[in-house]
Amino acid sequence: MDNFTMLAIVPLGYADKVIAAANEAGASGATIFRARGADHTHAEGFLSFKVEPEEEIVLIAATGEVINAICAKIHEKFEKDSARDGSIYILPAR
């Protein structure tokens, strides 16, 4: 069976939205990590302070089909009513 681990990196506060979408698409669970990012658009700095945006990382383990469904759902939700963007990275799992 093709198993994958999905890492969704979103701005702080958006993790619940990802999880809601994932649950609708058939994910059985998710784990949320707190992180800080290095967003290069802010890397120039504001008054020589470097801005490190806070992020949340949502980890979901699922099969390829479920991941595809989750990603479609997340895109649907984020395209319409979200001010901020996020990225999804998929890692092969054994």
């Binding site: 994958f4 969704a8 979103v10 991941i67 595809n68 990603c71 479609a72 997340i74 895109h75 984020f78 395209e79 979200s82 963007d85 996020g86 990225s87 999804i88 990275y89 998929i90 890692l91 092969p92």
Partner: peptide, 21 residues
């Protein structure tokens, strides 16, 4: 760790699976 796929939440409509990964 090689990545199997990538997606940007606002822009992409579906996952772009990377075959090399």
């Amino acid at each position: 760790v090689p990545l199997a796929g990538i997606m940007k939440m606002k822009r992409d409509t579906s996952v772009r699976w990377s075959h090399t990964g």
